[in-house]
Design a protein around this nucleic acid. Structure first.
Length: 491
RNA sequence: GCCCCCAUCGUCUAGAGGCCUAGGACACCGGCCUUUCAAGCCGGCAACACCGAUUCGAAUUCGGUUGGGGGCACCA
């Protein structure tokens, strides 16, 4: 395999792209990049009735967000265009006509109603549903009669009645289907649009696609495609059917079953690099231990041989962990850049960012190592931004402490801190650590009380650093507020 | 109902006849570190679906069973 590798991602804009769709795109992209080939995006918009507004934008935005750049397709064009099937209708009609002329296809005049009834009956009789081929061998007169009735026919493929179609799937090895199990499927719909089967194989041929990497749900349509390639005399591409990604509960990913649009992962604060890494490991692995791989490592090591044949479940816990790994690996500047848009979406953090970027930049290192997603950052840092802390006053009184001891701890702290010149973490530690001894408290008791007073929480970033960032004034104000709370508390 | 695919810890996976008393990761549970949280480190829990066959030897090969998934539209 060399530079003649041409693969495509062919989404249909009938919904938003979920992780399954995107994983397919990613594998195609990795395959193309690994072999120095071309990655093509083709929009399969042949279903006018199910078209979803905004879907194309979501698809392209998703690819862009993950850094999956395409060499040909929407917005960038290419010499095999157009890349929207709705703009290639005449090509499909041409081929359909040719198949009819060759006696590999025929007009079918059966009404949807008749087809539905037929199918219902077949299902009831526990027969495999499929077209009964009523129009397959219509005589001239019968056809003329139907035409006169003003019925717009569909075009169906004349599937061979016997024999079998076998092929070598790059992931699943040899697969064989009996032709007798394949019905005469529709090629051209009555609205003039092609079905997936027709349009897909024509475009793969015209666009000189070398490898078709698609989800396993397409495996059973492959013999139909091969039959068409044979009838047309086209050389088929190589096929590789990727394992499915299943929703929790092991059902096919769909809107009903926990499928989220890839764009939502951006909104929830996942890093594209983490997403790419995670998705690559869903159905592919490098070895028995490597989990974290850069984009370049992924490209360099990607191979069909290491793709699994088993369907995988999407494990959000692991994604969260991996996202945390990536967040922690960012430099302070990179983290700021990544998190800024999310902070701007948060009212308090946004306001703080506008009034003092420096303050926010001081806060961020304290949060970076604790956040698993970018949206969490604003929440974890909230106490830095809020004017008035809201918390349960009894939290100020730590384990084995009384209201009096907590009060005294805060009073003395207030006094000592007030005298401090330098309000940095080190100076704070120098003052506060001996203070615990002096007060006869464990450090954990003193620091715990101070932590609640100053952050309103029992879990927060390291106390001294936190206080240093908050600043002397804010800390003293909050300690005063805490003392007020203690005074109001009945012992 | 018919056809196809698949089958290792709860999850993602390593494993292509002896290297496997089955390895890694997430999650979970302990411990260490520690002012809390997080991170980190150490340890633990936990799987070859089942039955036959081949073989000196099978998670790995073959057959069957069971289970799961996918497909069977004028949807893709």
């Amino acid at each position: 395999m060399n530079k003649s590798v041409r693969v495509r991602y062919a989404p249909s804009p009938t919904g938003y792209p979920h992780v399954g769709n995107i994983r397919t795109a990613l594998f195609n992209w990795l395959f193309a990049r690994h072999y120095g080939g071309s990655f093509i995006v083709r929009i399969e918009d042949t279903d006018v009735t199910r078209k979803v507004e905004g879907a194309i934008k979501a698809i392209l935005d998703g690819l862009r967000w993950l850094g999956l750049d395409w060499d040909e397709g929407p917005e960038v064009g290419g010499k095999y265009g157009p890349y929207f099937q709705s703009q290639r209708l005449e090509k499909y009609h041409e081929v359909a006509q040719r198949l009819i002329a060759q006696d590999n296809a025929y007009y079918c005049y059966c009404s949807t109603q008749r087809l539905e009834e037929m199918r219902a009956e077949q299902v009831q009789r526990k027969q495999p549903p499929g077209y009964d081929r009523r129009c397959r061998n219509l005589s001239q007169e019968e056809r003329a009669k139907k035409e006169a009735e003003d019925i717009t026919p569909v075009v169906r493929f004349k599937t061979p009645l016997e024999g079998q179609t076998r092929f070598n799937d790059l992931i699943r090895d040899d697969v064989a289907f009996e032709n007798s199990n394949i019905d005469d499927f529709v090629l051209l719909k009555s609205d003039g649009y092609p079905t997936y089967h027709l349009a897909n194989i024509i475009d793969d041929h015209l666009m000189e696609i070398s490898h078709v990497l698609r989800a396993e749900e397409w495996l059973s349509s492959t013999p139909r495609h091969l039959l068409m390639y044979r009838a047309l005399g086209f050389e088929p591409p190589k096929f590789a059917h990727l394992p499915m990604i299943l929703a929790p509960g092991r059902a096919k990913l769909s809107k009903r079953h926990g499928a989220m649009s890839i764009t939502e992962y951006y909104e929830q604060g996942y890093l594209p690099e983490a997403m790419v890494n995670f998705l690559a490991l869903l159905g592919w692995s490098l070895d028995d231990k490597t989990e974290i791989l850069t984009r370049q490592e992924l490209i360099g090591n990607f191979s069909l041989e290491r793709i699994s044949r088993t369907a995988a479940l999407f494990n959000q816990d692991k994604l969260d962990w991996m996202n945390g790994v990536y967040i922690r690996s960012l430099t302070a500047d990179e983290f700021f850049t990544a998190v800024e848009p999310y902070l701007m979406k948060d009212e308090l953090a946004g306001k703080a960012l506008i009034s003092s970027e420096k303050y926010v930049k001081d806060i961020l290192p304290l949060i970076q190592e604790r956040a698993r997603t970018l949206v969490e950052v604003a929440e974890l840092a909230q106490f830095f931004f809020v004017e008035e802390l809201a918390y349960d006053s009894t939290l100020l009184i730590g384990k084995n402490m009384s209201r009096e001891s907590a009060t005294r701890a805060l009073e003395v702290s207030q006094q000592r801190l007030g005298q401090l010149e330098a309000f940095d973490a080190e100076s704070l530690e120098v003052v506060l650590r001996p203070l615990a001894v002096e007060l006869g408290l464990k450090t954990g008791q003193l620091f715990g009380t101070l932590r609640v007073a100053v952050t309103g929480r029992t879990a927060a970033p390291p106390l001294f650093q936190t206080m240093a960032v908050l600043g002397k004034e804010r800390c003293l104000r909050r300690i005063e507020a805490a003392l007020d709370r203690l005074r109001g508390l009945s012992s």
